[in-house]
Computed example of a mutant assay.
Amino acid sequence: MKIQKFIFALVVACLVLTSCKTEAKKETPVVAKDAKVEKLAINISGMTCEIGCAKTIQSKLSKKDGVIDAQVVFIDSVAKIKFDANKTSKTDLIAFVDGIAGGDLYKATEKAPTKICDIDCKKDCCTKKDADKKACAEDCKKECCADKKA
């Protein structure tokens, strides 16, 4: 009886160890030389969870023809997509996301581009005595430095 239990436990252990999958490493997407790479950020409403919704949308987008990279951030309800404009378009991608789950669950809209501050906006906007006050004053006039004014 003890031998049967031992053999059974050994078989179960072997099955568990051989059936476990290791996570495949992500391969860097191959981009064709003639690809016209563009980026798109879209707002997605209707997501209710990170694993079921966001990961599903990201997975489906990643498999779509013309998509080079797709990242869906559940917390921000945003999808960031890098795609080949020769194979697909912004309108196609938005319609594709709208159509996931039968078209009734998610609503995608293009996210308005945000202004990106350049490296000079990291200055303390003239709170310190800079040697180049003129350059500092110009930086402080930038919209992205508005929150850093003294």
Results as ranks from 00 to 15, higher is better:
1 M>T: 07
3 I>S: 12
5 K>Q: 15
7 I>D: 01
7 I>Q: 06
7 I>T: 11
10 L>T: 07
11 V>L: 05
11 V>G: 03
12 V>E: 04
15 L>D: 07
17 L>C: 07
17 L>I: 05
21 K>G: 03
23 E>F: 05
24 A>V: 06
30 V>W: 02
33 K>F: 08
33 K>Q: 14
34 D>H: 12
36 K>R: 15
36 K>S: 15
40 L>Y: 01
42 I>A: 05
43 N>P: 02
44 I>F: 00
47 M>W: 02
50 E>M: 13
52 G>F: 00
52 G>W: 02
53 C>R: 05
53 C>L: 02
53 C>S: 08
54 A>P: 04
55 K>A: 14
56 T>Y: 10
61 L>S: 01
62 S>C: 06
64 K>V: 03
70 A>I: 06
71 Q>L: 13
71 Q>D: 14
71 Q>N: 15
73 V>S: 14
74 F>D: 02
77 S>A: 14
81 I>Q: 04
82 K>Y: 06
84 D>K: 04
85 A>I: 07
86 N>K: 11
91 T>H: 05
91 T>M: 04
92 D>Q: 13
98 D>E: 07
107 K>N: 09
107 K>W: 02
109 T>K: 12
110 E>P: 06
115 K>M: 08
115 K>A: 09
116 I>N: 15
117 C>N: 04
117 C>I: 08
117 C>L: 09
117 C>M: 07
119 I>P: 02
119 I>H: 11
119 I>C: 08
122 K>M: 14
127 T>S: 14
127 T>H: 10
127 T>I: 07
128 K>Y: 14
130 D>M: 10
130 D>A: 08
133 K>R: 09
135 A>R: 12
136 C>D: 03
137 A>Y: 01
137 A>R: 13
140 C>M: 00
146 A>K: 10
147 D>K: 14
147 D>I: 06
148 K>H: 10
150 A>L: 14
